[in-house]
Every structure is written in C-alpha cells, then in structure tokens.
Computed example of a mutant assay.
Amino acid sequence: MNETVHNRIAMLRAERRISRRQLADALGVHYQTVGYLERGEYSPSLFLALRIAEYFGVPVEVLFSTTPFPPLGAPAAD
C-alpha cells in the first residue's frame, strides 16, 4: 500500500513569496522539515498539516492529498 501524501506547499510558498525558513519559523519546525515535506520524503502529522493549512488560510484538502494533484493548467475532470 502506497502511503505517500502529496502536497502543494512549494507552490503556495512560491506564489506568496515565502521562504522555507520563513514558513518553518512560523510553524516552529526546522527549515529542512519544510523541504522534506515538499519533496514527499516526510508526511506531516495531522496537527502539522492543519497548522500549515491555517498558515496559508486554505482548507487542508487544498494542500494535501493521498492522490497526486493534477498539473496546473490541466483541464478539470468532468
């Protein structure tokens, strides 16, 4: 069973011009943790996932998914 958690952290960080260190400081984690999360090398705890979503002001399902996100600009599925 594949237990990969896909995320859009890097996309939101870039969109809002927030560095890994800035996000890490706001969340109280090491900046390398943000990198591990973005690359899918580490799955966040539920608490951390909720805190990240709260930081960006979006629902948690906008940031995290058990299935890969479609590429940006891809047509929406009907």
Rank of each mutant, 00 (worst) to 15 (best):
E3Q: 12
E3K: 12
V5T: 15
R8L: 06
I9Y: 12
I9E: 13
I9P: 11
A10P: 00
A10L: 12
L12V: 12
E15W: 08
E15R: 13
E15L: 14
I18W: 04
I18Y: 01
R20E: 14
R20M: 15
R21N: 07
R21H: 07
L23E: 03
A24R: 01
A24H: 02
A24V: 08
A26D: 07
A26V: 05
G28Q: 09
H30A: 14
Q32S: 10
Q32I: 05
T33S: 10
T33G: 02
V34Q: 04
G35D: 13
G35Q: 08
E38D: 13
R39C: 08
R39M: 06
G40M: 00
E41K: 10
Y42V: 00
Y42C: 05
Y42R: 13
Y42W: 07
P44D: 05
S45N: 04
S45V: 00
S45M: 05
L46H: 10
L48W: 10
A49T: 03
I52F: 09
I52V: 14
E54A: 09
E54Y: 02
F56E: 03
E61G: 00
E61V: 05
V62M: 04
V62R: 12
V62P: 01
L63R: 06
L63C: 08
F64W: 07
T66L: 13
F69H: 07
P71F: 10
L72D: 14
L72P: 03
G73V: 00
G73A: 08
A74C: 03
P75K: 09
A76E: 15
A76H: 04
A77Y: 01
A77W: 00
D78F: 02
